[in-house]
Amino acid sequence: ILELRLVQATLFKNVLEAISDLFSKANFDFSGTGLELQAMDTSHVALVALLLRAEAFNHYLCDRDLSMGLNLADMAKAFRCANNDDIITIKAEEDWSDTVTFTFESPEDGEISIFDFDFVGTNGVPLEIPEFPESEYQAKVRMPSAKFMRICKKLSSFGDSGDRDTVVIISVDKECVNFFTRGKTGTSTIVCRQTQTVDKPKEPTLIEMKEQVSLAFDLRYMNSFSKGSTLSDQVTISLSSNLPAVFEYKIAETGYIRYYMLPRIEE
């Protein structure tokens, strides 16, 4: 039996906000330790892995590992009807019904909405995610997630968003991280300087650089990855010339969401 409860729908609403625009379905793995979710976009260019430990839930009962594929678009619709302070209950029996039930209860007027989701196939997930060796990453940048989202939006409005191949070139040296894109009639560069601790900013921009790196990423995917900002106010971007880049958002001591994709390589 699987029975979980969250007294605030906010967390799950934010999870769906962070993944449902790029990923159409996901594999949900429920085990004693918590929920592990994985999804890949239809072109298998991006993979997202989310961990929510059991402690993230107000009630967590899972006496047998349960794995299910769910349609994220349908779930996002259901969650859009939910209010942030609705109590969510997630239940599944292993009665081979291949459905999971989400119940939303609004605390003020006791209205209850019940959604049954049928299990669906998941395109190629779950996959085993190896611990990529730190040494392979030339640079890691930690910055405010709202800042990363703002930069992606600015570059998308400037870049030739009609052109599906518009890239953002992320370059890191020891002082700053640059975001560059080419539009129809010009280019745009946004420079983020590493904040000195003396500035004591609310949210620092920190750079760990082994060697300079400059990589090109599809701007549409960067925009989707920046939606992780619903779950965390910091994003860590790990860049390697020959491994998947990782965009990680730690979810306050209960887990993380990580987006992976390879840089575009000059032909």
Partner: peptide, 14 residues
């Protein structure tokens, strides 16, 4: 142009 590779061959099928 720049070539985009898929991500799958960096992860292991379970």
């Amino acid at each position: 142009g720049r070539k985009q590779s898929t991500i799958t061959n960096y992860f292991v099928r379970t």
